[in-house]
């Protein structure tokens, strides 16, 4: 292989690319396209939510009061902070400071776990109260029509988001393994950067979810 070898020689770009940078740019574009599909997939539920909210504003307003704004705000802060640690981790990888990358990735995972724990408490409280989606709604103190619909959206939107958080934890764990293997260098850091993108996207979704569900109802 005659392509410019990186210093460690661990990573070779695939045969159909001219250079490692060429491959990196292509991978990054692929990641952006993937994120577009995520925008449309999650966004479609937002559209459904906005339509139903516009149609039954009172019910959705009453229902949103049952959410815990403090826990929601706490989770927002946690996710924003985790986005910051992720950014530091990626730039450390780009500079070749793998130790810092691993530390930052671990912090990010820790913050993601905090998010999950808070979410767990919120969910178990809802299940206990009976503020559940659609036909499972049993909360006696608020029995307006269309209130259960709010909780359908709440559980689906936050549920899909939580699923993405769990996937993110898995990806970051994988990245720690790859950084430790010495594969990640200032010449080749594509996987770390792309996982970073993914994690910021998870944050970005929550940035919309939080006001829509918890604050504005």
């Amino acid at each position: 292989m005659s392509q410019p070898l990186n210093t460690t020689g661990v990573h070779h770009h695939a045969h159909h690319f001219d250079s490692a940078d060429h491959e990196f740019q292509a991978s990054k574009q692929g990641m952006w396209i993937f994120m577009v599909t995520e925008v449309l997939m999650i966004g479609a539920i937002f559209v459904g939510y906005l339509i139903m909210r516009a149609r039954y504003p009172e019910a959705f307003h009453e229902a949103h009061k049952l959410l815990n704004v403090k826990l929601g705000a706490l989770n927002t802060a946690v996710l924003i902070l985790s986005s910051y640690t992720m950014v530091r981790g990626v730039s450390a990888a780009q500079r070749g400071n793998n130790k810092l990358t691993i530390r930052m990735l671990m912090t990010t995972i820790a913050l993601a776990l905090v998010f999950c724990v808070v979410k767990y408490f919120e969910y178990s409280h809802k299940i206990h109260e009976g503020t559940l989606p659609g036909g499972n709604y049993t909360y006696a103190e608020l029995s307006m029509p269309h209130v259960p619909l709010f909780f359908s959206f709440y559980f689906i939107m936050t549920g899909i988001h939580a699923f993405h958080v769990l996937v993110g934890i898995g990806l970051m764990t994988w990245m720690i393994k790859r950084v430790k293997s010495g594969e990640i260098t200032p010449e080749f850091f594509t996987p770390v950067e792309l996982v970073g993108f993914y994690w910021h996207f998870v944050d970005l979704v929550w940035i919309y979810l939080f006001p829509l569900l918890y604050l504005l109802g």
């Binding site: 599909t37 995520e38 925008v39 449309l40 997939m41 999650i42 479609a44 539920i45 459904g48 139903m52 989606p133 659609g134 036909g135 499972n136 259960p148 619909l149 359908s152 959206f153 559980f155 689906i156």
Partner: peptide
């Protein structure tokens, strides 16, 4: 477009399993 189909089918499955009612 395909992601919207994906989520639509997920919602329909949830209708059947969890009675979400959307």
């Amino acid at each position: 477009a395909t992601p919207v189909l994906a989520i639509t089918l997920v919602l329909l499955m949830m209708e059947r399993v969890f009675k979400i009612g959307i």
